[in-house]
Design a protein around this nucleic acid. Structure first.
Lengths: 212, 212
DNA sequence: GTCTATACGCGGATAGAC
DNA sequence: GTCTATCCGCGTATAGAC
């Protein structure tokens, strides 16, 4: 093969192709050899741009989080901003469901996460929430959004009715898969609106009328 | 080696030792060869009891979920039962934090999950919730508990202050790790009590006074 | 600084003997 | 039901060509 004058690889191109492989065929399909082949290159060449395979996966995760819209913070009242942000955050995860299990592997230095935390925390703080409340509300929201993106609730139930013989209350559970989006989206909206409404009520107690 | 009359292996013993390896050293430390060595056996012998390594991991996950206490359902009013169950569910996950990323891989046929879903859904249905609400409340709770068990919020923030130079609102974020339990437990309790309180209010609207 | 060629050790898994 | 022998793909280290 003729060696081109311009580099064949760049971090951006590697992340792009890696994301498409994971999206199409899952995390296990992403090997360094496979990725290199699709990039027209040999596997060790990747190590000129990333130290390890995990760093490539971290970069994929970072790109996904970086795509989350944060523009509502500071432009809308904090409860509306929280709602819009959470919906966008979940949508960004659901666009790359195969990556989510990797994101669950634990904390990593992903700059986009810090930008996001800064925006959420900052909006709550600027609205008048005490720091400890702002932190906990941000964490609570992340727990909920991450959990809802993590795996479909409906898909956890096989559509074979015979599975449910010994579970008296699950006689209709085999139909959950058919109504996947109603179930999953409905549960997300129920939880989201319940949380934000609760925070609005708490705001009244903690910030607006803190005296007895 | 002398061939023993009694089988050396059983599913239970395999799962037990595999769990201890994962708990002590993480998911990556669990290889079939390592597991076999600790069981006093050669790696391929494991395949007489499990079809793949993933089946072993599924069995670990199932054992963890099976340990979640469900006895409060039917014994306590549904809001109290939900609170107690959610705390126990999270505690069961936090007792085996290294397994959680595997559980995030998606739904699998894990019988203990069905038993759990049956208990939660049944308690809500018996309390008077319409099926669609009972389903969504169960899913919402699972999202939240799974998300909060998935990864510490506090540990996502490095304790090196210099990281936060460009994030105006995160000037004190390097101290989050010190207060890990306050942050993580506090956020869990905030979200949990907010959700259940919201469901109690909704119950009033949907079930107690559905007219007008 | 970027890519190729080669190689090491370990992983999951299978086939067949006992 | 467990063993031995073996296969193949994996992440990645290293050396050297350009």
């Amino acid at each position: 093969m003729v060696r081109p004058r311009q580099p064949l690889l760049s971090r951006g191109r590697i992340v792009e192709v890696a994301t498409s492989i994971v999206d199409a065929e899952g995390l296990d399909a992403l090997s360094t050899r496979r990725l290199a082949r699709e990039l027209g290159v040999q596997a060790p060449s990747l190590y000129n741009h990333f130290g390890t395979k995990d760093e490539i996966l971290d970069a994929i995760g970072d790109a996904i989080v970086a795509a989350v819209d944060l523009s509502m913070f500071g432009r809308e009242p904090w409860p509306d901003a929280l709602l819009a942000w959470a919906r966008g955050y979940r949508a960004a995860f659901l666009a790359h469901p195969n990556v989510v299990p990797f994101l669950a592997r634990g904390p990593a230095l992903r700059p986009a996460q810090l930008r996001l935390a800064d925006a959420v925390y900052g909006a709550l703080f600027d609205a008048g929430w005490p720091p400890s409340h702002a932190t906990r509300i941000g964490a609570t929201m992340r727990y909920f959004v991450a959990g809802s993106a993590l795996g479909s609730f409906a898909l956890g139930f096989p559509d074979d009715p015979s599975v449910y013989g010994h579970y008296p209350h699950l006689a209709d559970a085999h139909r959950l898969r058919e109504h996947k989006s109603q179930v999953d989206d409905g549960a997300f909206e129920l939880g989201l609106t319940t949380l934000v409404a609760g925070f609005v009520a708490l705001f009244e107690q903690v910030v607006v009328t803190p005296q007895r």
